[in-house]
Amino acid sequence: MCNNYAMKVSPATLMDSFADAAIPLIFPEGMPNAEPTESVRPTDPALLIRGDGTGQAALTSVRWGLPPSAPKRPLLINMRSEGRSFTSGRALVPASWFYEYTGTKYPKTKWTIAPLDHDFITFAALCKATSEGPRFSLLTVDAGPDIVGTYDRQPAVVAPDDWAAWLDERVRPPHLGPSRAGTFRVFESAKG
Rank of each mutant, 00 (worst) to 15 (best):
M1A: 11
M1T: 09
M1C: 08
C2I: 07
N3A: 14
A6C: 07
S10A: 13
S10H: 07
A12D: 10
D16V: 14
A19C: 13
D20P: 03
D20Q: 15
A21Q: 06
A21D: 09
P24Y: 06
I26M: 06
P28A: 10
E35A: 12
T37C: 05
T37D: 11
E38G: 11
P42C: 01
A46S: 04
A46H: 01
A46W: 00
L47V: 05
L48M: 12
I49K: 02
G51A: 05
G51P: 01
D52L: 12
D52P: 08
G55M: 07
Q56C: 15
A57E: 01
A58G: 13
L59A: 06
T60V: 15
S61H: 11
W64S: 02
W64Q: 04
L66R: 05
P68M: 09
P68I: 03
A70W: 06
A70Q: 14
P71D: 03
R73S: 08
L75W: 00
L76P: 03
L76V: 12
I77Q: 00
E82H: 12
R90C: 07
A91F: 10
A91E: 08
V93N: 01
P94N: 00
W97N: 12
E100K: 04
G103D: 11
T104S: 14
T104G: 13
K108S: 11
K110N: 09
K110C: 06
K110S: 05
I113T: 03
P115L: 03
H118G: 12
F120W: 09
I121F: 05
F123R: 00
F123Q: 02
A124C: 08
A125Q: 02
C127W: 00
G133R: 11
R135L: 15
F136R: 01
L138C: 07
T140V: 04
T140G: 07
V141H: 03
V141Y: 00
D142F: 09
A143C: 07
V148Y: 08
V148H: 08
G149A: 13
P155L: 04
A156H: 02
A156Y: 01
V157L: 06
A159L: 14
P160W: 05
D162A: 12
W166G: 04
E169R: 08
R170P: 05
R172F: 13
P173E: 04
P174Y: 05
P174A: 10
H175N: 15
L176A: 07
L176Y: 03
P178H: 07
P178E: 05
P178W: 02
G182R: 06
R185W: 11
V186T: 10
F187I: 02
E188V: 08
E188D: 07
G192R: 15
G192F: 15
G192Y: 12
